[in-house]
Amino acid sequence: MQKEALRLRVNGSLREALVPHHRSLLDFLRDDLELTGTKRGCDDGSCGACTVLLDGCSRLSCITLAHGVPGRSVTTIEGAGQPGRLSDLQLAFISEGGLQCGFCTPGMVLAAGALLQRIPHPSEEQVREGLSNNSCRCTGYGRIVQAVRRAAGAPEETP
């Protein structure tokens, strides 16, 4: 088994570990760094629970090699806002009821953050397309979409 030193900036700090070549970024984060906020849901890139940010862009860490992203800066949910200093987006997820079981939420929050970087004031359609790599089994998405739009400053919807 080929192991090699891996240096990666994760949530702002430089992290180093001896990591096998075939380790996924997801396993590296969860098992080597014990950053378990990034979730494993599908093993094949189809659920989005493992979404992290790579230089601000969303990325599916279960189908990314830990050694495959040299020199890039990784942000996980642990770096995106923690209790006491939650981001506006996270607060909007809470206030709009955009989460239930919470398993998809870290990935959803990061994907939504990446979306707002690209499109600061997305339409409902753009939010839905923007989150289409992230699957949620609890909410039916309506409240997630609402949370993202609220965080982006869209007015409260009156049905």
């Binding site: 014990e34 378990t36 949910i77 209790p83 939650l86 996270q90 009821g97 239930q100 919470g102 398993f103």
Partner: peptide
């Protein structure tokens, strides 16, 4: 009055521990 889930902050910040997160 709508109340956010008691542990919403933990869930939205990835701190909630699911079984695969235990070490």
């Amino acid at each position: 009055r709508s109340e956010p889930l008691l542990d919403a902050e933990e869930r939205v910040s990835g701190r909630k521990l699911y079984v695969d997160d235990l070490r």
